[in-house]
């Protein structure tokens, strides 16, 4: 049982280190605003094979869900709040995203180059 405890302890330490490195890593930030159910900018260029941080600021009073099948991301951002979403590393290409609550207007894409 003692050895099991040691293993568990080591695992906890390993995971903590992994988490800390993942959170603290310096990643470039890109901003997207939501206003009148539109994404601004609706087209964003990011570098290929790099992890980036998207800061999504919802300036509407209504909530919106940032969603993308191609990026495998979904996040609800309440009215007048902001949210962060990490994306990448990605291969070059165009990755569309949309606002699930207002998909007729809230459309955009990320071009990875």
């Amino acid at each position: 049982m003692e050895s099991l405890n040691v293993v568990i302890r080591k695992l906890i330490i390993a995971f903590t280190l992994l988490f800390c490195s993942a959170v603290q890593a310096e990643t470039p930030t890109y901003e997207i605003r939501i206003k009148d159910h539109l994404f601004l900018p609706s087209k964003l260029k990011i570098p290929a094979n790099k992890k980036i941080k998207l800061l999504i600021i919802n300036e509407d009073v209504t909530p919106e869900e940032f969603e993308s099948y191609e990026l495998n991301r979904e996040k609800v951002i309440m009215g007048n709040r902001k949210g962060i979403v990490f994306i990448g590393p990605l291969k070059s290409g165009v990755y569309p995203f949309f606002g699930e609550f207002n998909p007729s207007t809230a459309q955009g894409s990320i071009e990875v180059k």
């Binding site: 988490f19 941080k53 990490f86 994306i87």
Partner: peptide, 24 residues
């Protein structure tokens, strides 16, 4: 996926892409 999205787990390139066969 949620933990990757929030940066708690490291992001990696997808293992495969079957979106041409069955789209999500």
């Amino acid at each position: 996926l949620y933990l990757i999205q929030s940066g708690w787990l490291p992001s990696q390139l997808p293992l495969w892409d079957t979106s041409q066969i069955i789209s999500e």
